[in-house]
Simulated scan of single mutants.
Amino acid sequence: MATTNDLKNGMVLNLEGQLWQVQEFLHVKPGKGPAFVRSKLKNVLSGKIIDKTFNAGTKVETANVDRREMQYLYHDGEDFVFMDSTDYEQVALSAALVGDASDYLLENQQAQVAFHEGTPLYVEMPPAVELTITHTDPGLQGDRSSGGTKPATVETGLEIQVPLFLDEGVKVRVDTRTGDYLGRVKE
């Protein structure tokens, strides 16, 4: 048990028998009336996002979530196969469970898989990954580092916007939370 004053981003709560992950929270002290906590919660299983307001200091039940460092091995039909880095146990996760993380997964890449009572909940990617551009249209004469962007497809099949001067075969950093281009990787 914890109180709403202890909320942190990423914390998983057990509300009415369902698991909800805290996406955002804000402690509000209005000039008149009691303080409260405004939060944005994401259902761990369905992905549904809701806004919920708690009175300050209200007790909430936290869920015991075990995050394990796992290595992505391969894609098998509808499943993604991961291996626990400590005991080499393999786990097959459904495409629905992996979700948007599949856009950034390369073989042998590390990711965190969250478990609750032995059941996998979701896959958490590092904040940024390095991917190679496999297809993009060539830039036009006069295109330089400042200016517009163009679509580019990376090795996982994800399409991102990159600066006009980048070509195929260039390795770039991509933000896994937003899908934005962060910069070119120096080799």
Rank of each mutant, 00 (worst) to 15 (best):
residue 16 E to V: 03
residue 13 L to I: 04
residue 122 Y to L: 08
residue 163 P to R: 06
residue 21 Q to A: 05
residue 151 P to H: 13
residue 29 K to R: 09
residue 5 N to F: 03
residue 107 E to Q: 12
residue 3 T to S: 14
residue 51 D to Y: 10
residue 5 N to L: 11
residue 22 V to W: 10
residue 8 K to W: 03
residue 33 G to T: 02
residue 76 D to Q: 15
residue 65 V to H: 07
residue 24 E to V: 01
residue 5 N to M: 02
residue 76 D to W: 15
residue 89 E to L: 09
residue 159 E to P: 04
residue 152 A to E: 03
residue 77 G to P: 08
residue 85 S to E: 04
residue 15 L to K: 04
residue 162 V to H: 06
residue 20 W to H: 00
residue 92 A to C: 07
residue 19 L to D: 07
residue 31 G to T: 11
residue 121 L to H: 14
residue 170 V to G: 02
residue 128 A to N: 06
residue 15 L to C: 14
residue 67 R to G: 02
residue 24 E to P: 12
residue 131 L to N: 01
residue 105 L to W: 00
residue 91 V to R: 11
residue 40 K to V: 14
residue 25 F to L: 12
residue 167 D to P: 07
residue 65 V to G: 00
residue 28 V to G: 01
residue 7 L to W: 08
residue 92 A to M: 06
residue 20 W to A: 02
residue 145 S to G: 15
residue 122 Y to E: 12
residue 171 K to M: 09
residue 77 G to D: 11
residue 185 V to F: 10
residue 69 E to S: 11
residue 12 V to C: 03
residue 159 E to S: 14
residue 184 R to F: 13
residue 19 L to W: 01
residue 179 G to K: 00
residue 116 H to E: 06
residue 180 D to F: 09
residue 17 G to K: 05
residue 77 G to V: 02
residue 119 T to N: 03
